Computed example of a mutant assay.
Amino acid sequence: MYQRTPVGGPNRRGAAAVEMALVTPFFVMLVFGIIEFGRAMMVCNLITNAAREGTRAAVLDGSTNAAVTQSVQTFLVGALGVSASDISVAIAVTPATGNPSPGNVIANCLPRDSITVTVQVPYNRVALIPGNYLQSKQLIGQNTMRHE
């Protein structure tokens, strides 16, 4: 009877284990990178939603800058679990044609003034994987609505 030997001969024993040992770290890094990127995209959407909530609160009569800031911070603290001190909220008011400048004070806004709410959160406060690679980056969300 004739027995065929596998291609490459018997000295290929353990080759799969060595190849796996070489490829696994890169594969794991790729998977964790995909997870971290997905998390960053989710957080960006939440920050944009927080800016939208703040702008909705800002366009109502009787609202104040402090109330809008509190609304944004409450939304993000509940959604992301970050501290309120990590959340930066900037409010800018652009007067409509013919309206006097309210000076970025929502209480002084007149109808048709544009209110822009910009929210920033440091990336390292919301990252799943700790590291210094994106430590100085900010995740930003912005929304603009017209005061009614």
Rank of each mutant, 00 (worst) to 15 (best):
A66R: 01
F37M: 13
P25D: 06
V59S: 02
F37A: 15
S114P: 00
Q3P: 12
A40K: 03
N45H: 13
I47F: 09
A16F: 01
A96C: 10
A90Y: 02
G103C: 04
M42H: 15
G33W: 04
V121R: 00
V117E: 05
Q73W: 04
Y123T: 11
P6Y: 09
R125F: 03
I129F: 14
G81W: 01
N45C: 10
T24D: 01
V119M: 07
A107Q: 09
F37I: 12
T55F: 03
P100V: 13
G14Y: 01
T97I: 14
E148W: 12
N108R: 07
F37G: 12
S85H: 08
V72K: 01
P6W: 12
I115T: 03
A67G: 04
T74M: 00
C109A: 08
A66W: 02
T144G: 04
T74C: 01
V119G: 06
S63E: 09
V89A: 11
P130I: 11
V7G: 00
V43I: 15
N143G: 02
T24L: 14
R56Y: 15
I115A: 07
L76M: 05
V77E: 10
A84T: 13
N99Y: 03
G54R: 04
N108F: 03
R4M: 11
S88L: 14
Q135H: 14
Q138K: 14
F37R: 06
A15M: 09
N104T: 04
M42V: 13
T69H: 01
G98Y: 03
V119C: 06
R112G: 00
T74R: 06
C109D: 07
Q3H: 14
V117W: 02
P122Q: 05
A84Y: 05
N108I: 04
G8D: 00
P130N: 11
S71A: 13
M20S: 06
G81Q: 08
F27I: 09
I35G: 02
A17P: 02
P100R: 02
G38F: 10
I47Y: 02
D61T: 15
A58W: 03
I140S: 05
P111I: 14
L134E: 11
V105E: 13
Q142N: 11
S71D: 03
S101E: 10
I140D: 00
F32T: 12
A107M: 08
C44T: 15
I129Y: 05
V82M: 03
R146G: 04
Q73C: 00
L22N: 03
A57L: 07
L128K: 03
L110I: 08
S71P: 00
Q3I: 13
A84E: 13
T74A: 13
I87G: 11
T116H: 00
F32S: 05
I35R: 02
S114I: 09
V105A: 02
